[in-house]
Design a protein around this nucleic acid. Sequence first.
DNA 1: AAGCAGTTTAGAATAGTTCTAATAATAGAT
DNA 2: ATCTATTATTAGAACTATTCTAAACTGCTT
Lengths: 141, 141
Amino acid sequence: MRNKKTSPLSGVTVLERLRDAGLRPTRQRLALAKILFARGHRHVSAEQLFNEAKSSRVDVSLATVYNALHDFTGKGLLREISIDSSSSYFDTNTGNHHHFYFERSGHLEDIPSEHVNISALPEAPGGAEITRVDVIIRVKA
Amino acid sequence: MRNKKTSPLSGVTVLERLRDAGLRPTRQRLALAKILFARGHRHVSAEQLFNEAKSSRVDVSLATVYNALHDFTGKGLLREISIDSSSSYFDTNTGNHHHFYFERSGHLEDIPSEHVNISALPEAPGGAEITRVDVIIRVKA
DNA sequence: AAGCAGTTTAGAATAGTTCTAATAATAGAT
DNA sequence: ATCTATTATTAGAACTATTCTAAACTGCTT
């Protein structure tokens, strides 16, 4: 086996990120995490990630892609979004923000939370704790 | 032929509602519409509606339930909501409002639009038209 | 009453996701 | 380094929600 962990920047950082999250940095998880976190924030479906992995000659099964996405989500590295019941998206931006949803293309775009101002939020019934507030602006495009 | 149009939203009114929407008031659509619109607003899944129909000895196929839900949605009698990628809900309240989503039970509850105040909505990219703005408040219950 | 477009239906098909249980890899102790 | 217990990966089967198919039926107009 070549390629120990001599990769420039991405390799090591991604590895630390997995370790810090308490996830074993396996070959597959590292490869997927690199694809996910290498560049800026993105929204991916399981199928998309699976295909990208294949294209970059990373050999992972679809089940592993699902496992990784859920593991990452469970540890707060990703956030799951279901806008359209046909499939889920995973957002690498786990901070507080909202979304434009382009109905025609099914594409998502982040809206920084400062750009949306919500006032007068109602109390949750029975004093239940609010997990989060999602604002989805659907646009016809 | 009792029960002609004694209650505001039963029998005849439902029939008129379908006709006005340009939908043929078939036996099945009438029965489903009665279940949906008889009482106050509600959120139903296809499976739920199918079961309620069975319980009230209305003989409809699951395919017809799906057809009806989509036809009603297409004509503005219902509004589709996908919060959880596992299944869709149809809301008999088609007016402007938002939702509490109870994560544990998967239950939905309406929030009148007056109870949420959104200011500073961003422009849609490329001047695209905004179809609607959904606010989902997820609560841990 | 007759014809036809619009509906319904059972069951097959599909899409996305999860499960199974066998195999392999990792972390930590030796 | 090696051993071991634990955790991860995998192919393929299974599952769930939904859509499709194509044949039978119904409500509407004439």
